[in-house]
Each structure stands twice: as structure tokens, then as C-alpha cells.
Computed example of a mutant assay.
Amino acid sequence: MTHERSTGSPAGAVRLIEADEQHAVLAFSGVLDEHVLRDLEERLLDQRLRQAGSWLLEMSDLQQLDLASAYALLRAMASVPKPPAVTIRGARRPIQRTLRHVGIDALAAIVT
């Protein structure tokens, strides 16, 4: 997920920075779209993430988020047996709009 696409736009990346039973930190960067959707979905199924009581989603390096990727994130948040407390930090305004459009703001706090 760290390669450049032929269009010159940086491919998106999602990294699990840290995780334990208390919290998990995910860092998002680049462009998350259909080209990286499968990898995004796989990373969101990480058992360490699913066991954490809270998630911090750091999006300050995220340039673009398409609807399919936002819905994948929403599905991951909603599928955890005990839903985590989720904070989304650093998302640019267009990304915040996409997150709100899919309803993530009902499950997460979006902070700047």
C-alpha cells in the first residue's frame, strides 16, 4: 500500500501504530479509494483493533477518502462486538464531509 499509482496520486496507507486492550491508534495517509479498499478492509479486521476499547483514527496525512472506504470504516466500527469509543482526529473538511455522509459521526467524535 505504499506504492505510487500511475496517476501520480499517492496510494493510501493505513497503519496500526499501537494497540492493546485499552486503545488502538490507526494512522491514515495518502488517498484511500477503490485501489486500496481490499487492503483497508483487511487491516480493519486486525484482531488487536477489534479488542481495543477505544480507537484513535489519525487522519491528518489523509488527502482523500472515497465513499467505499468510508463505508468500510463504518462497517468495521459497527461490527465490533463491544463498539469502541472512536475519535477521528485531523481530518480535512472534505474528508469530514465524507465521514458525515456515511453516518460515522453517529459512532465517532470528529475533532480537528
Rank of each mutant, 00 (worst) to 15 (best):
M1I: 11
M1Y: 11
M1V: 13
M1R: 09
M1H: 06
T2V: 15
H3C: 11
H3Q: 12
E4A: 13
E4L: 10
S6Y: 14
S6I: 14
S6L: 14
T7G: 06
G12T: 04
G12V: 01
G12Y: 00
G12M: 03
V14A: 09
V14N: 01
V14S: 05
V14Q: 06
R15W: 14
L16Y: 08
A19R: 05
A19S: 09
E21P: 12
Q22G: 10
H23G: 02
A24W: 00
V25K: 02
V25Q: 05
S29V: 14
G30D: 03
V31K: 03
V31S: 03
V31G: 04
L32Y: 06
D33E: 01
E34G: 11
E34S: 08
E34V: 11
E34A: 08
V36L: 00
L37A: 00
D39F: 02
L40E: 00
L40N: 01
E41G: 04
E41Q: 05
E42Q: 11
E42P: 08
R43G: 04
Q47P: 13
R48E: 09
R48K: 07
R48F: 05
L49R: 07
Q51A: 07
Q51E: 08
Q51F: 05
A52E: 02
G53E: 03
S54C: 08
S54L: 05
W55S: 00
L56Y: 04
E58A: 00
E58P: 03
S60I: 13
D61T: 10
Q64C: 15
Q64P: 13
Q64W: 15
L67G: 15
A68Q: 05
A68V: 09
A68W: 07
A68L: 09
A68F: 05
S69P: 07
A70M: 05
A72P: 03
L74N: 06
R75W: 15
A78W: 12
A78D: 11
S79A: 08
V80Q: 06
P81N: 07
P81I: 09
K82G: 09
P84A: 01
P84I: 02
P84C: 03
P84T: 03
V86D: 01
T87K: 10
I88F: 07
R89A: 10
R89M: 11
A91F: 01
A91R: 00
R92H: 09
R93Y: 15
P94A: 03
P94N: 03
I95P: 00
I95N: 01
Q96R: 12
Q96L: 14
R97C: 10
T98I: 02
L99V: 09
R100M: 04
R100S: 07
R100W: 11
V102R: 03
G103E: 05
I104Y: 02
D105R: 05
D105W: 07
A106M: 12
A106R: 13
L107I: 12
L107Q: 04
A109N: 09
I110F: 06
I110E: 02
T112V: 14
T112L: 13
T112K: 15
